[in-house]
Structure formats: C-alpha cells, structure tokens
C-alpha cells in the first residue's frame, strides 16, 4: 500500500472541506483574524483592559446584572451570566479582576439578540467579576464578588 499517496489524498480532502466552508460563509478568515482584541485580552490590569476596549472609566449601573454564585467550590468552572436592561446594548464583556488575563470574554450583541448571555469561566482565586456593557455608545459596569474555595488555575 502506498502510504504517501493516502496522506496526500487526506490532505487534499481536508483543504477542499475548508475551501467549501469558506465559500459557504461559515468561516470568514478576514473577519476572524482582525476582530480579536489582543490588547484587551493581554491586559494585566483592569484599567489597561478597559482602556484597550475604549471603555475608559465606565459608570456603575444597576441595569447591568451579574448572575454568579457567591461561593464557587470549583474555580475551574464558575457559571456567569450577564443581563443588561439598558436599551441599545451592543456589547457585553466579562472580566475577572484577579486572573492573570482578566478579560474572559466579549460578546457583540446585534439588534434582535437579547442582552442576556451565560457562560462559564475559570477563576484562580476569590475575586470581583466585572460585567462591562456598551449601550448606545456608552460604557456601564457592574461587579460582584465570587469566593473561590479551590483555584481553577493550579498546575
């Protein structure tokens, strides 16, 4: 059996699939490359992350609600939900103040999508979780402390 030939065929098939996906609009390489906000994700302090997002110093708002446990037993999996009741919410970001990379996730909310997202994050230690919401061009935030009994970033 000619093994090289099989590998070539496999590689060819893989490429063809990727091409198809791009053609179908499932993957948009130009968009995927450009959008990731490296500065914000690499930021080591809350102020730096906010600055990289263009948020400056957001005002605290009661219309931004964080759903997270008061005490998380396992820091590797902490459920966090953010709801924004502000009109024209465009973006929701979740930050964990004491993580090495504090920005966990940014969600862009197009019109028609409800400003209500849930995900799970890792937490190295007890920390404040910040939700930063961009609504109608302005930034708002809210925070909640989550106590972690077992860190999620241990080796």
């Amino acid at each position: 059996m000619n093994i090289q030939r099989r590998d070539t065929l496999k590689a060819g098939g893989g490429l063809g699939m990727l091409g198809l996906l791009v053609a179908a609009g499932l993957i948009r390489p130009e968009l995927a490359e450009a959008a990731w906000n490296k500065g914000a994700f690499d930021a080591k302090s809350l102020d730096a992350a906010m600055a990289a997002m263009g948020a400056g110093k957001p005002a605290e708002s009661a219309d931004v609600q964080i759903a997270a446990p008061d005490i998380a037993e396992n820091g590797a999996v902490v459920p966090v939900g953010v709801v924004s009741n502000l009109p024209k919410t465009e973006q929701i970001s979740i930050m964990i103040e004491k993580n090495p990379n504090m920005l966990a996730a940014t969600f862009d909310i197009p019109e028609g999508t409800i400003a209500d997202v849930q995900t799970r994050v890792k937490m190295g230690q007890t920390s404040d979780i910040y939700a930063v919401v961009k609504a109608d061009g302005k930034f708002y935030m809210s925070k909640k402390e989550v106590k972690v009994t077992l860190g999620g970033c241990g080796g």
């Binding site: 959008a35 590797a76 999996v77 993580n99 990379n101 920005l103 996730a105």
Partner: peptide
Amino acid sequence: VLSAQFGPSVSTNPY
C-alpha cells in the same frame, strides 16, 4: 445573532 471573543479565562469545554 451573536459574535464573541474569548480569552483563556473561559472554562475548558466552554458553555
């Protein structure tokens, strides 16, 4: 309907 950017702080097997 939603686009998101994740950092390494999101949990393993993200939900």
